[in-house]
Design a protein around this nucleic acid. Sequence first.
DNA 1: CAGAATCCACCAGGATACTG
DNA 2: CAGTATCCTGGTGGATTCTG
Lengths: 140, 140
Amino acid sequence: MYERKTPLTIDCGLHLTREVLNGKWKAALLNAISMDVKRPSEILRLLPGATRRVLNVQLKELEEHGMVEKKIYPQLPPKVEYSLTEIGWSLIPIIDAMNQWGDANRQFLETVITQDPKITQTSKSACQIHRRMAIDRKIV
Amino acid sequence: MYERKTPLTIDCGLHLTREVLNGKWKAALLNAISMDVKRPSEILRLLPGATRRVLNVQLKELEEHGMVEKKIYPQLPPKVEYSLTEIGWSLIPIIDAMNQWGDANRQFLETVITQDPKITQTSKSACQIHRRMAIDRKIV
DNA sequence: CAGAATCCACCAGGATACTG
DNA sequence: CAGTATCCTGGTGGATTCTG
């Protein structure tokens, strides 16, 4: 256990939300699970560029924060399924909004972001799935 | 300049949005500016726990990403004002949503988050201002 | 297939002090 | 008041390897 030098501020809703979504893949994970991509190997396939370890870590945090539930099937080969909790689901509209905002402004964002050259590559899979499933959910 | 080991994926709207909001204070900064807290010293007062340096860095990124504009008044003492661009404004609904989600689930979140003991302290200022102004903006 | 244990590079971001 | 220059630390998350 450790202690932060500067304690986080938790009284602002913004910071609470930030804390939950803090982590490179958290939002993507919630998104994936909401799209019924719920098994670790599927998620892994959906998010190339993420390690199994990282996903495990972040999924565990999401679980500890009560956003997802993990169901372990005691069988061989092992099987695990994640699902969103009620409060986890309540985050989905926000994630959808972020997704849509990013898509809507893709043209512009890719330009300005690519200028500071941290960004390079691509992976459309998650989004394609998102759109399809979002339609199923009557969101789009 | 450096190069990331694993290039970020930019094709998913989620990741684009994440990139823009990536930084401990980005959302809070946009929020503050949208609330007409637009001068560096005001912002600094609003976000205790953030250094001037860090705010400058993140504001600069927001500026480079086209979310805010910086107006410098060439006078003494110097005066600077930030404002949201059009695309910056379009992010505000999402930030509001995050804020509201965090507030709505405060009870629960504070519990689960405080358990892994990274969090300690408080600062309600930003939120109080938020609510008041949000009413002005007819959002709440 | 799922996961845990190590190891470690690398920045984000905090502290401090100085300039205009 | 605003901005910048340095310095430094700790945590994130990537790579790798090993179990059941």
